[in-house]
Nucleic acid binder design. Structure first.
Length: 947
RNA sequence: GCGGGGGUGGCAGAGCCUGGUCAAAUGCGCAGGACUUAAGAUCCUGUGGGUUAGUCCCUGCGAGGGUUCGAAUCCCUUCCCCCGCACCA
């Protein structure tokens, strides 16, 4: 049997019958989406995972009676496709090889110089592969993004005009890591070095010195209240520059940096560091004249090469000051009066419990730092002081109006105040050097007049938080991740100079970037069906069209006239939107939790009333292959096509869904996939063999199987409602197969009715996981209908039989024990005698359980039982049991029935034991046995005697 | 640094919220068996360590303490790992 042939057959049948093409109706609907993939590659197994999870939920809800919709779009917005096309044009080896590896013929490569061709090529590949994979997708609703698709382009244009109208699209300024050679922002993927570099914000403090300003850079503006002096490196050459109307003195390197961040900069001349020493400059905020001292430790590459000194809270400053105060020669060299220098004392400004008011001094003592040469220790101490000071510190009385306030709360306020009073400015620095792929050193540039989406807007934020709060998020821990992100949200720059996309209406030279043009497009799937049907095209898509269909604005008669569409059609579109919206589930990889999904929520709250806000988000982890991150170099890169060819659709689906769940990563195990493939074949074979099953008699095993099946149904349904694929599979697939294996194994004369029922349930219950196999099984069972059109199995309480299940469990236990003993004895038994626990033990165990809940003391418990006549005669055994039970309560049997019931149960089922061991089984009550083993018997665990 | 999540068998991964009936569901791998001419598949049995005329005992959930009659689970301390922090899709 070839499973691939079977799967292909069903994929075709579904397609021909259009069972996944969804139309509005009167039934309840379920609309599930997942983020459209970026189409610069053919799909690989990682892509497939989120799609399968969505597919699983869709099939489940479909069989619960919902009208389901699963659309599938494609994302082409952004840089990579254009980049790849450029690289092909340039004839770059690696890029061409990558395409060739993806199965593109050499003579075709030429065409990949055109981004549009790349988009169309891969969209086609995706539809082909995903289609063959049998997803329950309504392919009429597929589209790709960017201006290459005029209709979608019109939709996004409308969206951004609306955002602007609402005041949510604003202009602003922001710093980026920038490559001067490429003349564009240099993202982490474009870098050769410094991928992890971040932008740090230094506050530039202005110290008035005559007509000039010495500019010192600091990361701790709140410590200005403790300034005692300035450090200037006497050996460094500084430059005097004109900044607007002011003259600044900074290091040469700082000037180079500032050029990118300040307007109207002009170099006036050089200043030798040593010439500044000993002079006094007026410090910002405290407005005090402080002395400029020689700081040989000052690095001209960092900040501005000028440092303000706060010896109370900065270990470097503290040690440098102490050293200078001892160094008569150095003072003399720069003409300083050492006695004056010695008068400089740290000014306490921040107090913490751990470090007191002189944290730098304390830290230096703790770390045993004596000299500036201990640079590593000084850096450690600085970090430590900062961490404690910032998070736990409180500003003291020397800090003016900030006294008594927490450091973390005032830090920004202090710098804001100084900037406002023109006592300070800003300098952006990279946390580490960045080199662009083009080998140019990057700088930080301040981009001006950039368009931002105003995600920082407090009202909008609040609405979005409410939306998140009211929806389901699965798994739950994803909610916290998102919540924290929303709270932290700043405005998002939404325009890019390069890459594909929709032009920003208010600045058409720029395209809308990839995460901003994909926030409310789920609504566009509804419109796309009509574009596909050629009923609507870009010329109809006036703003009034979207206003009416999506926002219910306007008179149908006027809108129809304006758009050139019939009134009927636009009414129909509006109706469809109102039917399918809101999105019931958006399932996504966890990587989108802190960006795309947030924007998705934000924009929905901006465009629609609560009624249309998304109902649920599901997140899943990454996919690894055989425990390793998928990569081409490791040779473990599996495309979806590979998986389909090798394992088939259902086995691949199982390999995903059986391994990962929730936000942790899923491991696609190739061995497991292969083993699933075999298992699926054997399932179909078994069902084919059903025709030879003729048995009519029913016994405990039939009842047991039916009862087990009910529990499997119940557990599967509960798990699926929480999108827990793995948990669900444990019951629906593995559980049921284990159950039925036991049945096949133990049942002498297989019962037709039982097995037909079983496989019918199996085939329906597993549709979300292995839809093709289920169709085949369903057909073999004689159904004329698609299994997808049948009802999902419903838990039937009447078929649950607890006591039968317990009996079978009991039998399993006994078999296990007997087998062990036989192994020890090492001979084939003639007789097996099971000695049922004496009647009093049943009472004892029951009473003990109750008594133990109240009293835990061994002696008290013994006394309690010894008071009772009926137990006295078994005192030895009782004391032994109590001691053992108190030590380890697990010895207490799960369930205590009574002797009569257990005796009857064993008698009824003894034939199974006899068959198992092929020997006679004798069942006696302990009271009727003289054998010593009778004493070891307890409820649920008979004494066993092998002869 | 900030935020989130983890550390359990050869591997992947349950159990933790709500302490005991739990140590390891489920899958993979491995070993043995049944079936088969044979192989594969399938099914059965076993799979932390130790011991065994007895269905058991000892040890074990990153490390160290504590609470409790009882801790993988609760509390404290400590070590280690992964992910996100935005212009990258």
């Amino acid at each position: 049997m070839d499973i691939h042939v079977i799967e292909k057959k069903w994929v075709k049948k579904w397609k021909d019958a259009k069972i996944f093409e969804s139309e509005v109706g009167s039934r309840k609907k379920f609309f599930a989406t997942f983020p459209y993939p970026y189409v610069n590659l053919s799909p690989h197994v990682g892509h497939a995972y989120s799609a399968i999870r969505n597919d699983m939920v869709i099939r489940f809800y479909r069989m619960l009676g919902y009208n389901t919709l699963f659309p599938f779009g494609f994302h082409a917005t952004g840089e990579p496709i254009v980049g790849a096309a450029k690289r092909v044009k340039k004839g770059e080896e690696s890029q061409i090889k990558a395409f060739e590896k993806a199965g593109i013929k050499k003579e075709e490569i030429e065409k990949f110089k055109d981004p549009e061709f790349i988009v169309k090529y891969f969209v086609n590949e995706w539809v082909k592969d995903m289609g063959e994979f049998g997803l329950a997708v309504d392919w009429r609703r597929s589209f790709y993004t960017t201006s290459l698709n005029q209709e979608y382009n019109a939709f996004v244009t409308w969206q951004f005009n609306k955002l602007k109208e609402k005041g949510l699209l604003v202009k602003g300024t922001h710093p980026v890591i920038y490559c001067p050679e490429c003349d564009s922002a240099c993202g982490s993927h474009d870098r050769k070095e410094g991928e992890d570099a971040t932008i740090e914000e230094y506050v530039l403090l202005k110290f008035k010195l005559g007509d000039e300003h010495l500019i010192a850079a600091t990361l701790r503006p709140e410590t200005v209240f403790g300034q005692t002096n300035l450090w200037v490196n006497p050996d460094t050459s500084y430059v005097r520059i004109k900044v607007g109307k002011e003259e600044w003195v900074v290091s040469e390197i700082a000037y180079e940096k500032l050029k990118w961040q300040q307007k109207d900069l002009e170099k006036l001349g050089n200043v030798k560091g040593s010439t500044l020493i000993g002079r006094y400059a007026k410090a910002p905020m405290i407005k005090k004249e402080i002395i400029i001292l020689p700081g040989l430790f000052v690095n001209p590459n960092v900040g501005t090469g000028i440092v303000t000194s706060v010896p109370s809270d900065a270990p470097f400053d503290y040690i440098a000051l102490k050293m200078l105060q001892r160094d008569e020669n150095l003072c003399k060299k720069y003409g300083l009066d050492i006695e004056e220098i010695k008068k400089i004392k740290p000014i306490p400004i921040i107090k913490t419990e751990e470090l007191g008011e002189f944290s730098a001094e304390k830290a230096c003592n703790d770390y045993k730092i004596k000299s500036l040469n201990q640079k590593d220790l000084l850096e450690k101490a600085t970090k430590h002081v900062y961490k404690i000071g910032f998070h736990k510190g409180v500003m003291n009385k020397n800090c003016g109006k900030y006294a008594g306030k927490k450091v973390e709360l005032v830090k920004d306020k202090v710098s804001e105040e100084m900037i406002k009073n023109n006592e300070a400015g800003l300098l952006h620095e990279m946390s580490e050097p960045v080199v662009c792929r083009c080998l140019t050193n990057c700088v930080i540039k301040i981009l001006e007049n950039q368009w931002f989406i105003k995600y920082s807007d407090e009202i909008w934020k609040k609405k979005t938080l409410k939306c998140l709060n009211d929806m389901r998020v699965l798994p739950e821990e994803a909610r916290n991740v998102m919540k924290n992100m929303i709270i932290k949200m700043k405005d998002k720059a939404c325009a890019r100079k390069s890459g594909l996309g929709t032009p920003l209406p208010c600045d058409p030279k720029c395209n809308i970037e990839c995460l901003s043009d994909s926030t409310i497009y789920m609504s566009y799937y509804i419109i796309q069906k009509h574009v596909h049907n050629k009923e609507v095209s870009v010329k109809n898509m006036k703003p009034e069209f979207f206003d009416y269909v999506l926002l219910k604005k306007g008179e149908p008669r006027i809108v129809a006239k304006k758009t050139g569409l019939s009134e009927e059609l636009i009414k129909q579109l509006k109706k469809e939107f109102e039917y399918w919206y809101p999105v019931d589930l958006r399932n996504s990889g966890k990587d989108l939790l802190t960006n795309h999904l947030i924007f998705f929520l934000y924009n929905h709250t901006a465009f629609w009333p609560e009624k249309y806000w998304p109902k649920a988000i599901g997140a899943n982890g990454w996919v690894t292959v055989d425990g390793m991150k998928m990569s081409k170099s490791k040779g473990n890169f599996v495309t979806l096509r590979d998986a389909i060819n090798k394992y088939g659709n259902d086995a691949s689906r199982l390999a995903f869904m059986d391994t990962g769940e929730g936000i942790s990563d899923a491991d696609f195990s190739t061995k497991a996939a292969l083993s699933f493939k075999n298992k699926l074949v054997s399932i179909i074979e078994r069902v084919e063999m059903l025709k030879d099953v003729k048995g009519k008699d029913k016994d405990v095993l039939d009842e047991w199987l039916l009862s087990k099946v009910q529990k499997r149904i119940k557990n599967t349904t509960i798990a699926l409602k929480d999108y827990l694929n793995r948990t669900a599979l444990k019951d629906s697939f593995h559980g049921l197969l284990n159950d039925v294996n036991y049945y096949y194994d133990k049942k002498k004369n297989l019962n037709t009715e039982t097995l037909n029922y079983f496989w019918s349930v199996f085939s329906r219950l597993n549709v979300p996981f292995i839809p093709h196999t289920c169709e085949e099984v369903n057909e073999l069972l004689g159904s004329k209908e698609f299994v997808h059109n049948l009802k999902y199995p419903v838990f039937d309480k009447k078929l649950v039989n607890e006591s039968v299940e317990e009996n079978v469990e009991l039998l399993k236990d006994i078999n296990y024990d007997v087998k062990n003993i036989i192994k020890l004895v090492g001979k084939k038994p003639k007789n097996i005698t099971l000695i049922i626990s004496p009647a009093w033990k049943y009472d004892f165990f029951k009473e003990f359980k109750k008594a133990f809940e109240k009293k835990k003391d061994v002696k008290e418990l013994i006394n309690l039982f010894m008071k009772q006549e009926e137990y006295k005669k078994n005192s030895k055994q009782i004391i032994g049991l109590i001691n053992a039970l108190v030590k380890d309560l697990s010895k207490l049997p799960d369930k205590v029935t009574n002797q009569k019931e257990e005796f009857e149960a064993f008698n009824k089922n003894k034939k199974f034991i006899e068959e198992e061991f092929n020997s006679e089984v004798i069942i006696v009550k302990a009271e009727d046995s003289k054998n010593l083993k009778a004493q070891t018997a307890i409820p649920g665990k008979p004494g066993i005697l092998i002869e």
